[in-house]
């Protein structure tokens, strides 16, 4: 098992190096630092100001190692990212590390309850739908799922803000307050939208997993020994169907830290998703780059965690 983990970690490191290279190509080779500087400072600034700005951000060196092996942007990019020295924002010169640290809390405040609520709603619902498979309840359920999947998240957000926030005035339209008494009021709407927009795809996916498991021979065995349908669903089918579901969930855990782009920016939650959206709208390349790297880092760890968690649920999996 130790060797397996090591090998997975080695592969993950390799993938991260690949991600960093792609980022370099996208953000330095395709859009060169002069473009970035002009986007940050304006089109008509004197060259001296641009040089000064590039020096401040560490962009004042050649791109590739073959141009200058000691002092080039590629190696510098790798060194800084891998040591978590993310530098300054291209847009407003604020330190990126600080913004990430500040954004983590609000992001988690939104995403953790969102994941728990989402699972709490979709797993029972999909069990119910799978239980009534091939009846009109199942067909209705699947149709509702497809219906829910066909609505753009934008429309969910706008609809909820308009209907519940503006017309009914149940919850504030947007905003954030870390005070534990006020927080639920602010989170209610984004949570509702988050659960609603995910429910269609999730229920359908889980339903497929449940139904696939419930056509297996061991289910017939369980019936033949006199187990009730409810018991078969919860004891025999759920355990087996949890394996594909678990993959999804464990993979989602790292992304709890990164927040949700749409929900955070629409509902004014100062989390990492919001940071990312601000960076996009302000042409803030260094922040964007950092965010992509952090997402990828989390993703790679999530995948390793998923593989290892297989071993916990599925006795057939052995790590060699």
């Amino acid at each position: 098992m130790g060797a397996y983990v090591l090998r997975r970690l080695g592969w993950g490191a390799l993938v991260l190096l690949g991600v960093l290279f792609l980022l370099f190509v996208l953000f330095f080779a395709v859009t060169d630092p002069d473009d970035i500087a002009r986007k940050a400072l304006g089109e008509k600034v004197p060259p001296a100001v641009i040089e000064q700005w590039k020096a401040n951000h560490g962009y004042d060196r050649p791109l590739w190692p073959w141009q200058d092996f000691e002092n080039n942007l590629l190696f510098d990019h790798y060194r800084r990212m891998l040591t978590f020295d993310f530098g300054l924002s291209d847009a407003d010169d604020s330190p990126i590390t600080e913004r990430i640290r500040d954004g983590m809390g609000p992001s988690l405040a939104l995403t953790v309850p969102l994941l728990v609520l989402g699972l709490g709603v979709s797993i029972p619902l999909s069990l119910l739908v799978a239980f009534f498979r091939e009846t009109y309840i199942d067909r209705m359920g699947v149709f509702l799922c497809v219906l829910a999947m066909s609505v753009s998240t934008l429309l969910y957000i706008i609809g909820a803000q308009f209907l519940i926030g503006k017309v009914l005035r149940w919850f504030p339209i947007s905003g954030f307050d870390p005070d534990p008494l006020l927080l639920p009021r602010f989170l209610a709407l984004p949570l509702l939208v988050g659960v609603l927009s995910g429910i269609g795809a999730d229920v359908r996916f889980y339903r497929t997993a449940f139904i696939e498991e419930s056509t297996r021979d061991f289910v017939r065995t369980a019936r033949a020994k006199g187990a009730s349908e409810a018991r078969i669903m919860t004891r025999h089918v759920l355990r087996n169907a949890l394996i594909p579901i678990l993959t999804q969930v464990v993979l989602a855990i790292p992304f709890l830290f990164s927040g949700s782009l749409l929900l955070e920016s629409f509902f004014g939650i100062p989390g990492l998703g919001g940071v990312t959206v601000d960076a996009i709208q302000a042409n803030d390349f260094s922040t964007l780059r950092t965010m992509v790297f952090i997402y990828s880092l989390l993703f790679v760890f999530g995948q390793i965690a998923t593989d290892l968690s297989y071993g916990l649920v599925d006795p057939r999996v052995r790590f060699e």
């Binding site: 021979d217 061991f218 017939r220 065995t221 369980a222 019936r223 033949a224 020994k225 006199g226 087996n240």
Partner: peptide, 27 residues
């Protein structure tokens, strides 16, 4: 349905062709 369940496994039991798949792999 409940009465039938009390007969299955208790008064009438069944074994199947494929022992590989007839047992639950995770239990």
């Amino acid at each position: 349905v409940g009465e039938m369940r009390r007969i299955r496994g208790k008064r009438i039991a069944m074994i199947f062709q494929e022992p590989m798949t007839a047992l639950n792999p995770v239990l």
